[in-house]
Amino acid sequence: MLENFEKELLKTIADISGLPDAGAFNIRRNGESAGRHSTENITIEPKKDKPGIDIRVMPFTSHEAVHIPVIVTESGLNDVVYNDFYIGEGAEVRIVAGCGIHNNGECDSRHDGIHRFHIGKNAKVTYVEKHYGEGEGTGARILNPVTEVYMDEGAECEMEMVQIKGVDSTVRDTKAHLAENARLLITERLMTHGAQTARSDVVINLDGDGSSAQIISRSVAKDTSEQIFYPRAVGNSRCRAHVQCDSIIMDSAKIRSIPEIAANHCDAQIVHEAAIGRINNDQLTKLCTLGMTPEDAEQVIIEGFLS
């Protein structure tokens, strides 16, 4: 049975309170399955050789969702999981992942999710992953996700990866390969506070003609937290890519943003933009002229920026 605070965690990261009534799902709690359900078109099976699941979506499945959130509520747990997604040709699916850590103890709690996506021809995937940490303990909340995406001809994938708050340390590693006419959009939003650290490496390989990719990274660093972004787009074909990193820096935080673009083909068109700056004073003043306190104004600006 899920405790109330565990349901709250699920709500925060996957917008479900408890086990979903419909659709395919797998809820992982403290390294074990707390509920699993397959449907006619989506099967979820545990791996035999290592921790994790295989998620298979039948070709031409239309508009189905699968929830695979993870919660870690036991202090000191070091959870590693390998999840493979096989999305059949022409299928349309929404995948809701995410991890919430509740750590009330002195030991570090850690979850490393290694996700591999094999997206079939003309399939469409929407992927949402939210990371969140909470708890009174001194133990750290650590999340190190690895995401690999292999996209067949004409596949489309939109990935939204969010770190809401409370994650002490994260190293994110994302790789993608795009075949002909595949289209990938990665939106990354991240907030760090206290003495947290975050690093995100993204490499997109545009291998097929007509492929396109966009990486939009937005972050806010507060207090003494530190962030490093290293998004790279590599054009190996007639392709288009756009990389955009935009950060708000506050207090004594530090941010490094290193977008890299590479072209190995003369018809590759790749653009990058990067900006780091404080909250603009005019924005704060404007919201104060609407009756908000400077503190509320700051909050509203950050929320909008990360929305």
């Binding site: 005019d282 924005q283 104060c288 002229t289 400077p294 909008g304 920026f305």
Partner: peptide, 23 residues
């Protein structure tokens, strides 16, 4: 303060209004 005046019913449309990402 600006906030207090705003709450008392003073409003000001800027000559160059600031922009807000995501709002």
């Amino acid at each position: 303060s600006v906030t207090e005046r705003a709450r008392l019913g003073v409003g000001y449309a800027f000559q160059q209004p600031p922009r807000f990402k995501g709002m």
